[in-house]
Amino acid sequence: MENALNPLEAPDLTRTDSAPREALALPQAVLWDMDGTLVDTEPYWIAAEHELVEAHGGTWSHEQALQMVGNPLTESAKILQDAGVDLPSEQIIDFLISRVIEQVRVEVPWQPGARELLAELRERGVPCALVTMSYRSLAEQVVQMAPVGSFVTLVCGDEVTHGKPHPEPYLAAAERLGVDVTRCVAIEDSPTGIASARAAGAATLGVEAVVPVPVLPGLSRTPSLALVDVDALSRILAGDVVDLIED
């Protein structure tokens, strides 16, 4: 039976059912999305989209930008072409990535609680993988600025055949780590990413960042990683629904 936490109880995440806290198994691994989840780079992407569309004489709305969140970059390029960007997909992707890398080199905008959770996972021996639709050139910039040893492996958008919401990225991460994906917790912020993680069979925590995280059966949610610790991830793995968002 799933147990939902009252949002007013946050950040007290002690288990309330009959299973003792110390009996909960740690995740075999934690699989992290990057943009919006680990780092608040979505504003960087949106600014680059505006710049590109407007340079080609088009207009770009905030609502259009939100529809891009979590998409494979090839899909985003098609949407930008439809908005009037007369460039091949590869050039569009290169432009967007280069602009975001420029910003990340100035400052990595870590989401609140992300670095602390990474450190706790490392202290408790839980390996992490980064699973992102951004390309490796950007992902490596972010990982280099994370606490040393935070990520064992990276699965990036230019390394998979099928991007999110297909389960391939999360299945690939579990395979590279040598773990059972159903014994892992995925941390995501977009409906596309959440669908990918759940399709792969990972217990999933949705972090509300740029777009709302919907209420779905079995989906845990939080407005911030600052409210989440490793014990909470163990509860999610055990089948509890940890819901800290007030709808």
Score class of each variant (00 low, 15 high):
residue 37 T to Y: 04
residue 22 E to R: 13
residue 5 L to D: 06
residue 13 L to I: 15
residue 85 V to A: 01
residue 1 M to W: 09
residue 43 P to T: 11
residue 87 L to M: 15
residue 226 A to Y: 11
residue 139 A to K: 00
residue 140 E to Y: 02
residue 212 P to Q: 14
residue 244 L to C: 10
residue 189 D to G: 12
residue 46 I to P: 00
residue 92 I to M: 11
residue 78 K to C: 05
residue 76 S to Q: 08
residue 157 G to F: 02
residue 56 H to P: 00
residue 166 H to R: 06
residue 98 S to I: 03
residue 149 G to D: 04
residue 33 D to T: 09
residue 150 S to K: 02
residue 174 A to S: 10
residue 236 I to M: 12
residue 118 L to V: 05
residue 70 G to N: 04
residue 229 D to V: 10
residue 25 A to S: 15
residue 98 S to P: 01
residue 154 L to M: 05
residue 82 D to I: 09
residue 230 V to T: 15
residue 241 V to P: 01
residue 236 I to T: 03
residue 228 V to I: 15
residue 11 P to I: 13
residue 20 P to E: 10
residue 202 A to G: 05
residue 222 T to H: 03
residue 77 A to Y: 07
residue 105 R to S: 06
residue 95 F to C: 08
residue 228 V to M: 15
residue 100 V to R: 03
residue 82 D to T: 13
residue 172 A to P: 01
residue 164 K to P: 00
residue 224 S to N: 12
residue 126 V to C: 09
residue 201 G to Q: 03
residue 185 V to S: 10
residue 123 E to M: 11
residue 154 L to D: 02
residue 31 L to W: 04
residue 187 I to R: 05
residue 67 Q to K: 11
residue 153 T to H: 04
residue 68 M to L: 12
residue 8 L to M: 02
residue 29 A to C: 12
residue 133 M to C: 00
residue 136 R to H: 13
residue 174 A to L: 11
residue 133 M to I: 01
residue 70 G to F: 07
residue 110 W to R: 13
residue 189 D to V: 11
residue 15 R to D: 01
residue 149 G to P: 04
residue 5 L to A: 10
residue 89 S to P: 00
residue 213 V to W: 14
residue 209 A to S: 15
residue 1 M to Y: 09
residue 44 Y to K: 06
residue 96 L to K: 14
residue 62 H to Y: 10
residue 30 V to W: 02
residue 202 A to V: 02
residue 27 P to S: 09
residue 205 L to Q: 08
residue 174 A to V: 11
residue 50 H to C: 11
residue 140 E to Q: 14
residue 162 H to L: 03
residue 222 T to V: 14
residue 26 L to V: 10
residue 103 Q to I: 05
residue 176 R to T: 11
residue 106 V to L: 15
residue 228 V to N: 08
residue 118 L to C: 12
residue 243 D to R: 10
residue 13 L to G: 02
residue 125 G to I: 04
residue 60 W to H: 15
residue 227 L to P: 09
residue 67 Q to E: 12
residue 244 L to Y: 13
residue 17 D to T: 12
residue 184 C to M: 01
residue 46 I to T: 08
residue 26 L to Q: 10
residue 170 Y to M: 08
residue 229 D to Y: 02
residue 85 V to D: 05
